[in-house]
Design a binder for these strands. Structure first.
Lengths: 359, 359
DNA sequence: CCACAGATTGAGAACGTTCTCACCCAAGTG
DNA sequence: CACTTGGGTGAGAACGTTCTCAATCTGTGG
């Protein structure tokens, strides 16, 4: 056993009594505000040290109106995209003396709504939200109206008073698709992971349709994919757009289905790295080789992308920077910035490795 | 614009006034304690609804002494091990109405100590800590003494009053090494990732040395590796134990060094999946093939392990369950359990795939 | 009609800080 | 000497809840 066991933490009143001053003076000595004589300060600090005093930040927050806490709402922290982005957010927050309260929403609208309520009750100073695709604009706006600024990460919510940080999904997807087309591929599949409604929209979009499509992340990328095809004079084939689910097994199944098609795709664009793993797994199962039989390009430069055989060509997003920028933007708002809402697009980088070959 | 903009959130006093009752009654009506007439309750609820009232959980915590917040201290949330474990913790917490405050320590002792202070000031109800290898026992014990229970995840801190959740690292490493030995390998390398001090200790340990070694996670696994060698009558060779660093590049460099050795290893045991990626990368660079030229087994069943070629044989830890169990254990303590401290070891599972072949 | 138990209510304390304000005192200034 | 100045101090309010306690109301049984 080391040191004495104390159950309840001492309050500033106890410290003041021990130091022989008033609570007001003790507060000033420890909090670094107001003015205190050297003698008082030293007496208080010694007493605090002796008693193992820790200020109660709850009481402080009640007075100051600041919790120095940022809420972070992500679909799933296990997803490498979000864990890396969270790291960026946390670092930005920490750097300026803020902490991070994390909630997973599981892409579940009801959970997201409930979490917003909980975080509002905790009086977080601001919120970084990666909303579900069908985000509840009103619930988010209500939080903003209550005085809690929001920064959206990765996805956008039309009409919401919030800053946004993300990439140009449409341009990035278009670029990736163009690269596959330039390699001679004419039958390029798109693995989106979700949003069943995409496929029909993609076939006969009309201008209005494409614009509406581009509102979600997946939608924007699908639109970019389509842009590239159309510009290259390749007719988009709805059956080449797969939206079976977000899990690896879903992607594997989708790949098997795609490759069984008449006039099967010779190249696949996967919208995230987990889906790419599914493709790889399916190819291995089918005895097909990448890139000899099928070329593959994926979004996100996962840590394994460079190490596997063949190394995967990817659209790299600056994920950490996305999170850090969101954190900084949010803290600016928290600290009183009332600039117009910005929609920041960070640049992506195509990393050419060996999984996409000419045909 | 939708709805009216309100900057400051209404307090219960405003709601009470609006409903024509006292704050006490309003509190009872909204908080679900005490007894309230149906009429009052309905009036209060209607007023609260109208004003968009959200209780201030800070004020509540001041009274009840519970913040319903769990602190989580991990080295790096980007590490898939910790992000998965965190998911387990968060789910367990959420299930019982708790939230999670996250801090990264970057394996930095000073940061860990500072974070402990911050979380104590926030009056978190409990703490899940994955301590750095050289954890500050006294700092942790001080938190426990202040009445905040701690559950240790993955690593142990001797002499600390805390529950522990992890795996039997020594047995798991021994099992993995034995499997490689059974395949006929006689020159098996160990890639630990860190702790330079390990190597010399491993060569002439003596009983005392091995026991001390086994205190850290890495150390315990190294001891298990050694156990297997000794039992099989293979002389441990210190130069086959690499501890160059935790990053992928470090592992790649270490692999190149190992394979340039006279009597080079024909099998490698990597202590985490990131290190395994480094091995794979180095092998590709050297034009060597797995498992034809070198067999590889790694800890942790990363999401890519099954999808790459060859699929990686791994020691799978129940990572999510580890986190969830830590969360549950902690909440039991928070809610008053004073059972003896337990050290829970969850079972690991060796998943045989194709990266380890007989020689 | 009275007494009484139990439900319902409101005033005010409590939690642990920071903030406001009035006061004291020593050191200048005219 | 009277008057200002300003650092230092403590009493008490404030933040928004929950808790304690006494008072009031309601209905029931005698």
């Amino acid at each position: 056993m080391s040191g004495s066991v104390r159950r309840a933490m001492p309050s500033i009143e106890i410290v003041a009594k021990e130091a022989g001053v008033s609570t007001a003076t003790a507060g000033r000595a420890l909090g670094g505000y107001g003015s205190v004589s050297r003698k008082s300060r030293e007496a208080v600090q010694a007493a605090a040290e002796r008693l193992g005093y820790r200020p109660n930040s709850l009481a402080r927050s009640m007075i100051t109106g600041l919790t120095h806490t940022l809420g972070v709402l992500v679909p799933d922290i296990e997803n490498p995209f979000f864990s890396r982005a969270l790291r960026g957010i946390a670092d930005a927050a920490h750097e300026r003396g803020w902490e991070v309260l994390l909630v997973n929403t599981d892409e579940d609208l009801a959970l997201e709504r409930k979490a917003l309520g909980v975080l509002a009750e905790r009086r977080v100073d601001g919120l970084v939200v990666a909303p579900t695709d069908v985000a509840d604009r009103d619930a988010l706006q209500a939080v903003v109206d209550a005085g809690i600024p929001i920064v959206l990460l990765d996805r956008r919510v039309p009409g919401l008073d919030a800053d946004t940080v993300g990439i140009d999904n449409r341009a990035a997807a278009k670029d990736a698709t163009e690269r596959l087309l330039k390699l001679g591929h004419r039958s390029v599949a798109l693995l989106t992971g979700g949003d069943e409604k995409l496929r029909p929209k993609l076939s006969r979009p009309g201008l209005r349709g494409v614009e509406r499509l581009a509102a979600t992340t997946v939608g924007a990328r699908a639109a970019g994919y389509r842009d590239a095809l159309v510009e290259a004079g390749v007719e988009p084939r709805p059956e080449l757009v797969s939206a079976e689910g977000f899990r690896r097994e879903d992607a594997a199944a989708a790949t098997r289905r795609l490759l069984a098609l008449p006039d099967a795709p010779t190249a696949i664009l996967a919208l995230d790295s987990l889906l790419a793993l599914g493709v790889l797994q399916a190819l291995r199962g089918l005895g097909m080789r990448c890139p000899a039989d099928v070329s593959l390009v994926a979004f996100d430069d996962a840590d394994w992308a460079e190490a596997i055989s063949p190394p995967l060509s990817v659209v790299a997003q600056p994920i950490y920077e996305l999170g850090a920028e969101a954190g900084r933007l949010l803290l600016d708002r928290v600290q009183g910035s009332d600039k117009r809402f910005t929609h920041r697009r960070l640049p992506t980088r195509f990393i050419e490795r060996e999984s996409a070959a000419s045909r």
